[in-house]
Design a binder for these strands. Structure first.
Lengths: 166, 166
DNA sequence: CAGAGCATGTAAGAAGTTACATGATTGT
DNA sequence: ACAATCATGTAACTTCTTACATGCTCTG
Protein backbone atom coordinates (compact mmCIF):
# COMPACT_ATOMS: atom_id res chain seq x y z
CA UNK A 1 0.00 0.00 0.00
CA UNK A 2 0.93 3.63 -0.35
CA UNK A 3 1.96 5.75 2.58
CA UNK A 4 -0.88 7.46 4.42
CA UNK A 5 -1.88 11.01 3.63
CA UNK A 6 -0.79 13.86 5.88
CA UNK A 7 -3.57 15.92 7.44
CA UNK A 8 -2.99 18.67 4.92
CA UNK A 9 -3.01 16.28 1.97
CA UNK A 10 -6.24 14.72 3.22
CA UNK A 11 -7.91 18.09 3.58
CA UNK A 12 -6.81 19.19 0.13
CA UNK A 13 -8.20 16.07 -1.52
CA UNK A 14 -11.44 16.38 0.46
CA UNK A 15 -11.83 19.97 -0.57
CA UNK A 16 -11.28 19.17 -4.22
CA UNK A 17 -13.77 16.31 -3.94
CA UNK A 18 -16.39 18.62 -2.50
CA UNK A 19 -15.91 21.37 -5.07
CA UNK A 20 -15.40 19.08 -8.05
CA UNK A 21 -12.38 20.97 -9.38
CA UNK A 22 -10.12 23.64 -7.92
CA UNK A 23 -6.94 25.48 -8.85
CA UNK A 24 -3.96 25.32 -6.51
CA UNK A 25 -4.56 29.01 -5.85
CA UNK A 26 -8.10 28.36 -4.66
CA UNK A 27 -6.91 25.56 -2.39
CA UNK A 28 -4.24 27.82 -0.95
CA UNK A 29 -6.80 30.59 -0.32
CA UNK A 30 -9.10 28.19 1.50
CA UNK A 31 -6.30 27.42 3.95
CA UNK A 32 -5.34 31.05 4.29
CA UNK A 33 -8.93 31.96 5.22
CA UNK A 34 -9.27 29.08 7.67
CA UNK A 35 -9.55 29.97 11.35
CA UNK A 36 -6.31 28.18 12.21
CA UNK A 37 -3.01 30.03 12.17
CA UNK A 38 -1.39 26.64 11.88
CA UNK A 39 -2.41 26.43 8.24
CA UNK A 40 -0.49 29.28 6.73
CA UNK A 41 -1.91 28.80 3.27
CA UNK A 42 1.42 29.28 1.57
CA UNK A 43 2.07 28.66 -2.09
CA UNK A 44 5.25 26.87 -1.04
CA UNK A 45 3.14 24.22 0.67
CA UNK A 46 0.30 23.84 -1.82
CA UNK A 47 2.02 23.78 -5.21
CA UNK A 48 4.51 21.03 -4.31
CA UNK A 49 1.67 19.13 -2.59
CA UNK A 50 -0.35 19.17 -5.80
CA UNK A 51 2.61 17.86 -7.73
CA UNK A 52 3.02 15.09 -5.15
CA UNK A 53 -0.64 14.12 -5.40
CA UNK A 54 -0.45 14.08 -9.17
CA UNK A 55 2.70 11.93 -9.10
CA UNK A 56 0.86 9.44 -6.89
CA UNK A 57 -2.05 9.43 -9.29
CA UNK A 58 -4.54 10.97 -6.88
CA UNK A 59 -5.37 14.05 -8.92
CA UNK A 60 -5.40 14.94 -12.59
CA UNK A 61 -5.08 18.48 -13.90
CA UNK A 62 -6.57 20.29 -16.84
CA UNK A 63 -5.59 23.62 -18.31
CA UNK A 64 -8.76 25.66 -18.55
CA UNK A 65 -7.21 29.04 -19.33
CA UNK A 66 -9.51 31.20 -21.43
CA UNK A 67 -7.06 33.95 -22.19
CA UNK A 68 -3.49 34.76 -21.19
CA UNK A 69 -4.03 34.22 -17.51
CA UNK A 70 -3.20 30.62 -16.62
CA UNK A 71 -5.75 28.44 -14.86
CA UNK A 72 -5.06 24.81 -14.09
CA UNK A 73 -7.86 22.91 -12.40
CA UNK A 74 -7.30 19.78 -10.36
CA UNK A 75 -9.85 17.05 -9.84
CA UNK A 76 -9.70 13.65 -8.14
CA UNK A 77 -8.99 10.39 -9.88
CA UNK A 78 -10.65 7.17 -8.73
CA UNK A 79 -7.50 6.34 -6.74
CA UNK A 80 -7.58 9.83 -5.24
CA UNK A 81 -11.17 9.43 -4.12
CA UNK A 82 -10.29 6.12 -2.51
CA UNK A 83 -7.26 7.60 -0.74
CA UNK A 84 -9.31 10.57 0.45
CA UNK A 85 -12.03 8.33 1.85
CA UNK A 86 -9.38 6.22 3.55
CA UNK A 87 -7.97 9.31 5.23
CA UNK A 88 -11.44 10.52 6.14
CA UNK A 89 -12.54 7.30 7.80
CA UNK A 90 -9.33 6.72 9.76
CA UNK A 91 -10.84 6.61 13.23
CA UNK A 92 -7.49 6.10 14.95
CA UNK A 93 -6.29 9.42 13.63
CA UNK A 94 -9.66 11.00 14.30
CA UNK A 95 -9.60 10.36 18.05
CA UNK A 96 -6.12 11.84 18.39
CA UNK A 97 -6.06 15.11 20.36
CA UNK A 98 -3.81 16.58 17.66
CA UNK A 99 -2.32 19.98 18.45
CA UNK A 100 -4.64 21.77 20.83
CA UNK A 101 -3.00 25.05 21.88
CA UNK A 102 -5.55 25.70 24.62
CA UNK A 103 -5.27 22.24 26.08
CA UNK A 104 -1.47 22.48 26.07
CA UNK A 105 -1.60 25.71 27.99
CA UNK A 106 -4.27 24.72 30.50
CA UNK A 107 -2.14 21.72 31.35
CA UNK A 108 0.50 24.11 32.69
CA UNK A 109 -1.68 27.00 33.84
CA UNK A 110 -0.34 26.71 37.38
CA UNK A 111 3.07 27.89 36.22
CA UNK A 112 1.59 31.36 35.87
CA UNK A 113 1.15 33.64 38.91
CA UNK A 114 -2.50 33.74 39.97
CA UNK A 115 -3.27 37.19 38.66
CA UNK A 116 -1.89 36.26 35.24
CA UNK A 117 -3.87 33.02 35.30
CA UNK A 118 -7.09 34.95 35.77
CA UNK A 119 -6.13 37.47 33.11
CA UNK A 120 -5.30 34.74 30.60
CA UNK A 121 -8.49 32.77 31.23
CA UNK A 122 -10.65 35.88 30.89
CA UNK A 123 -8.95 36.85 27.66
CA UNK A 124 -9.50 33.40 26.24
CA UNK A 125 -13.16 33.44 27.20
CA UNK A 126 -13.65 36.80 25.55
CA UNK A 127 -11.74 36.05 22.37
CA UNK A 128 -13.17 32.59 21.92
CA UNK A 129 -16.51 33.92 20.73
CA UNK A 130 -14.86 35.66 17.80
CA UNK A 131 -13.31 32.61 16.13
CA UNK A 132 -14.68 32.62 12.59
CA UNK A 133 -16.17 29.52 10.98
CA UNK A 134 -14.53 28.10 7.85
CA UNK A 135 -15.52 30.04 4.73
CA UNK A 136 -17.82 28.75 2.04
CA UNK A 137 -18.01 25.30 3.56
CA UNK A 138 -21.78 25.23 3.81
CA UNK A 139 -24.38 24.74 6.49
CA UNK A 140 -22.87 21.61 7.99
CA UNK A 141 -19.53 23.32 8.55
CA UNK A 142 -21.20 26.22 10.29
CA UNK A 143 -23.24 23.96 12.53
CA UNK A 144 -20.15 21.90 13.34
CA UNK A 145 -18.22 25.04 14.19
CA UNK A 146 -21.04 26.40 16.36
CA UNK A 147 -21.32 23.20 18.33
CA UNK A 148 -17.55 22.98 18.64
CA UNK A 149 -17.27 26.49 20.01
CA UNK A 150 -20.06 25.86 22.46
CA UNK A 151 -18.54 22.65 23.75
CA UNK A 152 -15.12 24.30 24.15
CA UNK A 153 -16.64 27.18 26.05
CA UNK A 154 -18.34 24.78 28.44
CA UNK A 155 -15.15 22.76 28.85
CA UNK A 156 -13.21 25.88 29.77
CA UNK A 157 -15.94 27.06 32.16
CA UNK A 158 -15.98 23.75 33.97
CA UNK A 159 -12.22 23.69 34.25
CA UNK A 160 -12.14 27.22 35.62
CA UNK A 161 -14.76 26.28 38.21
CA UNK A 162 -12.61 23.29 39.16
CA UNK A 163 -9.56 25.51 39.56
CA UNK A 164 -11.58 27.81 41.79
CA UNK A 165 -12.45 24.94 44.10
CA UNK A 166 -8.81 23.85 44.36
CA UNK B 1 12.42 40.72 20.85
CA UNK B 2 13.19 37.09 20.21
CA UNK B 3 11.10 34.93 17.93
CA UNK B 4 8.15 33.20 19.61
CA UNK B 5 8.41 29.64 20.84
CA UNK B 6 6.95 26.78 18.83
CA UNK B 7 4.29 24.70 20.56
CA UNK B 8 6.82 21.97 21.22
CA UNK B 9 9.40 24.38 22.61
CA UNK B 10 6.80 25.93 24.89
CA UNK B 11 5.71 22.58 26.21
CA UNK B 12 9.29 21.48 26.84
CA UNK B 13 10.08 24.60 28.83
CA UNK B 14 6.81 24.29 30.77
CA UNK B 15 7.59 20.69 31.60
CA UNK B 16 11.06 21.52 32.82
CA UNK B 17 9.64 24.36 34.90
CA UNK B 18 7.14 22.03 36.55
CA UNK B 19 9.66 19.32 37.33
CA UNK B 20 12.51 21.64 38.25
CA UNK B 21 15.12 19.77 36.20
CA UNK B 22 14.91 17.09 33.52
CA UNK B 23 17.21 15.24 31.16
CA UNK B 24 16.54 15.39 27.43
CA UNK B 25 15.69 11.71 27.66
CA UNK B 26 12.98 12.34 30.24
CA UNK B 27 11.51 15.12 28.12
CA UNK B 28 11.49 12.85 25.10
CA UNK B 29 9.76 10.07 27.07
CA UNK B 30 7.06 12.47 28.25
CA UNK B 31 6.19 13.22 24.63
CA UNK B 32 6.35 9.61 23.62
CA UNK B 33 3.86 8.68 26.33
CA UNK B 34 1.51 11.54 25.50
CA UNK B 35 -1.87 10.61 24.00
CA UNK B 36 -1.13 12.41 20.74
CA UNK B 37 0.47 10.57 17.83
CA UNK B 38 1.46 13.98 16.55
CA UNK B 39 4.19 14.21 19.18
CA UNK B 40 6.43 11.36 18.19
CA UNK B 41 8.84 11.88 21.07
CA UNK B 42 11.91 11.39 18.95
CA UNK B 43 15.45 12.04 20.08
CA UNK B 44 16.00 13.82 16.78
CA UNK B 45 13.49 16.46 17.82
CA UNK B 46 14.35 16.85 21.49
CA UNK B 47 18.16 16.93 21.57
CA UNK B 48 18.48 19.67 18.93
CA UNK B 49 15.64 21.56 20.61
CA UNK B 50 17.54 21.56 23.90
CA UNK B 51 20.61 22.88 22.17
CA UNK B 52 18.50 25.63 20.60
CA UNK B 53 17.01 26.62 23.95
CA UNK B 54 20.45 26.68 25.53
CA UNK B 55 21.82 28.84 22.70
CA UNK B 56 18.99 31.30 23.28
CA UNK B 57 19.75 31.34 26.99
CA UNK B 58 16.47 29.77 28.06
CA UNK B 59 17.92 26.71 29.77
CA UNK B 60 21.15 25.84 31.50
CA UNK B 61 22.50 22.32 31.83
CA UNK B 62 24.43 20.54 34.53
CA UNK B 63 26.22 17.22 34.35
CA UNK B 64 24.97 15.17 37.28
CA UNK B 65 26.42 11.79 36.28
CA UNK B 66 27.23 9.69 39.31
CA UNK B 67 29.05 6.91 37.50
CA UNK B 68 29.83 6.08 33.89
CA UNK B 69 26.31 6.59 32.64
CA UNK B 70 25.89 10.18 31.48
CA UNK B 71 23.13 12.35 32.90
CA UNK B 72 22.72 16.00 31.91
CA UNK B 73 19.91 17.87 33.60
CA UNK B 74 18.35 20.98 32.15
CA UNK B 75 16.69 23.71 34.17
CA UNK B 76 15.22 27.09 33.23
CA UNK B 77 17.07 30.38 33.41
CA UNK B 78 15.23 33.58 34.33
CA UNK B 79 14.93 34.41 30.62
CA UNK B 80 13.61 30.89 29.99
CA UNK B 81 10.94 31.28 32.65
CA UNK B 82 9.88 34.58 31.12
CA UNK B 83 9.74 33.09 27.61
CA UNK B 84 7.77 30.10 28.89
CA UNK B 85 5.24 32.32 30.63
CA UNK B 86 4.95 34.43 27.49
CA UNK B 87 4.16 31.33 25.47
CA UNK B 88 1.74 30.09 28.12
CA UNK B 89 -0.27 33.30 28.33
CA UNK B 90 -0.52 33.88 24.58
CA UNK B 91 -4.29 33.94 24.30
CA UNK B 92 -4.25 34.47 20.54
CA UNK B 93 -2.49 31.15 20.09
CA UNK B 94 -4.66 29.56 22.76
CA UNK B 95 -7.93 30.18 20.95
CA UNK B 96 -6.60 28.71 17.73
CA UNK B 97 -8.29 25.45 16.71
CA UNK B 98 -4.85 24.00 15.99
CA UNK B 99 -4.82 20.62 14.29
CA UNK B 100 -7.99 18.79 15.22
CA UNK B 101 -8.14 15.51 13.27
CA UNK B 102 -11.75 14.84 14.25
CA UNK B 103 -12.93 18.31 13.34
CA UNK B 104 -11.15 18.10 9.99
CA UNK B 105 -12.90 14.86 9.20
CA UNK B 106 -16.36 15.82 10.40
CA UNK B 107 -16.13 18.86 8.13
CA UNK B 108 -16.08 16.49 5.16
CA UNK B 109 -18.10 13.58 6.52
CA UNK B 110 -20.61 13.89 3.68
CA UNK B 111 -17.99 12.74 1.20
CA UNK B 112 -18.37 9.25 2.64
CA UNK B 113 -21.23 6.96 1.61
CA UNK B 114 -23.88 6.82 4.33
CA UNK B 115 -23.05 3.37 5.61
CA UNK B 116 -19.39 4.32 5.99
CA UNK B 117 -20.40 7.53 7.72
CA UNK B 118 -22.31 5.58 10.35
CA UNK B 119 -19.49 3.06 10.72
CA UNK B 120 -16.90 5.80 11.18
CA UNK B 121 -18.95 7.73 13.72
CA UNK B 122 -19.63 4.62 15.77
CA UNK B 123 -15.96 3.66 15.78
CA UNK B 124 -14.97 7.11 16.95
CA UNK B 125 -17.55 7.04 19.73
CA UNK B 126 -16.29 3.69 20.91
CA UNK B 127 -12.58 4.45 20.71
CA UNK B 128 -12.85 7.90 22.20
CA UNK B 129 -13.34 6.57 25.70
CA UNK B 130 -9.97 4.85 25.60
CA UNK B 131 -7.79 7.94 25.03
CA UNK B 132 -5.31 7.93 27.90
CA UNK B 133 -4.61 11.02 29.98
CA UNK B 134 -1.08 12.47 30.01
CA UNK B 135 1.23 10.53 32.32
CA UNK B 136 2.56 11.83 35.63
CA UNK B 137 1.09 15.27 35.10
CA UNK B 138 -0.90 15.30 38.32
CA UNK B 139 -4.48 15.77 39.37
CA UNK B 140 -5.12 18.90 37.34
CA UNK B 141 -4.04 17.20 34.13
CA UNK B 142 -6.33 14.29 34.77
CA UNK B 143 -9.29 16.52 35.54
CA UNK B 144 -8.58 18.58 32.44
CA UNK B 145 -8.43 15.45 30.31
CA UNK B 146 -11.63 14.06 31.77
CA UNK B 147 -13.55 17.25 31.15
CA UNK B 148 -12.05 17.50 27.67
CA UNK B 149 -13.11 13.98 26.76
CA UNK B 150 -16.60 14.58 28.09
CA UNK B 151 -17.04 17.80 26.17
CA UNK B 152 -15.81 16.18 22.96
CA UNK B 153 -18.18 13.27 23.39
CA UNK B 154 -21.09 15.66 23.79
CA UNK B 155 -19.98 17.69 20.80
CA UNK B 156 -19.87 14.59 18.64
CA UNK B 157 -23.24 13.37 19.94
CA UNK B 158 -24.90 16.69 19.15
CA UNK B 159 -23.40 16.77 15.68
CA UNK B 160 -24.55 13.23 14.97
CA UNK B 161 -28.06 14.15 16.07
CA UNK B 162 -27.92 17.15 13.75
CA UNK B 163 -26.85 14.94 10.86
CA UNK B 164 -29.74 12.62 11.59
CA UNK B 165 -32.21 15.48 11.29
CA UNK B 166 -30.74 16.60 7.96
C1' DC C 1 24.01 -13.25 31.07
C1' DA C 2 20.50 -11.52 28.24
C1' DG C 3 17.22 -8.20 27.42
C1' DA C 4 14.81 -3.99 28.75
C1' DG C 5 15.39 0.50 29.83
C1' DC C 6 18.48 4.73 30.55
C1' DA C 7 21.13 8.11 28.19
C1' DT C 8 23.45 10.44 24.63
C1' DG C 9 23.50 11.94 20.01
C1' DT C 10 23.72 12.12 14.54
C1' DA C 11 22.22 11.48 9.48
C1' DA C 12 19.05 11.77 5.88
C1' DG C 13 14.83 13.16 4.45
C1' DA C 14 9.84 14.99 4.58
C1' DA C 15 6.87 18.64 4.75
C1' DG C 16 6.04 22.61 6.16
C1' DT C 17 7.42 28.08 6.62
C1' DT C 18 8.50 32.99 4.76
C1' DA C 19 9.92 35.59 1.07
C1' DC C 20 10.57 36.43 -3.58
C1' DA C 21 9.59 36.66 -8.72
C1' DT C 22 6.57 37.12 -12.63
C1' DG C 23 2.66 38.43 -15.16
C1' DA C 24 -2.72 38.96 -16.29
C1' DT C 25 -7.13 40.87 -15.03
C1' DT C 26 -10.66 43.53 -12.62
C1' DG C 27 -12.56 47.35 -10.17
C1' DT C 28 -12.31 52.30 -8.73
C1' DA D 1 -3.58 54.61 -14.02
C1' DC D 2 -3.18 52.28 -9.94
C1' DA D 3 -4.10 48.85 -6.54
C1' DA D 4 -6.00 44.60 -5.34
C1' DT D 5 -6.65 40.08 -6.60
C1' DC D 6 -5.91 35.97 -9.58
C1' DA D 7 -2.49 32.67 -10.79
C1' DT D 8 1.77 30.21 -11.12
C1' DG D 9 5.87 28.83 -9.16
C1' DT D 10 10.83 28.65 -6.85
C1' DA D 11 14.63 29.31 -3.16
C1' DA D 12 16.33 29.12 1.31
C1' DC D 13 15.31 27.71 5.66
C1' DT D 14 13.20 25.48 9.98
C1' DT D 15 11.59 21.95 12.42
C1' DC D 16 10.03 18.03 12.60
C1' DT D 17 10.29 12.67 11.23
C1' DT D 18 12.42 7.76 11.14
C1' DA D 19 16.36 5.19 11.61
C1' DC D 20 20.79 4.36 13.19
C1' DA D 21 24.91 4.17 16.45
C1' DT D 22 26.99 3.75 20.96
C1' DG D 23 27.48 2.43 25.65
C1' DC D 24 25.90 1.85 30.72
C1' DT D 25 22.83 -0.25 34.34
C1' DC D 26 19.32 -2.90 36.40
C1' DT D 27 16.30 -6.99 36.73
C1' DG D 28 14.86 -11.78 36.19
Amino acid sequence: MNQPLTEMEGMVLAQIAREGALTAYEVKEAFRLSPSQFWSGSAGAVYPLMKRMQDRGYVKSKDVSQNKRPRREFSLTAAGKKAMQGWLSDSKRAIDPGYDPLRSRLLFIQLLPENRQRQFLEQVQQQMATIPAPQKAGEIAEKLHGLWLDSRRKWLDRFIRFLGRQ
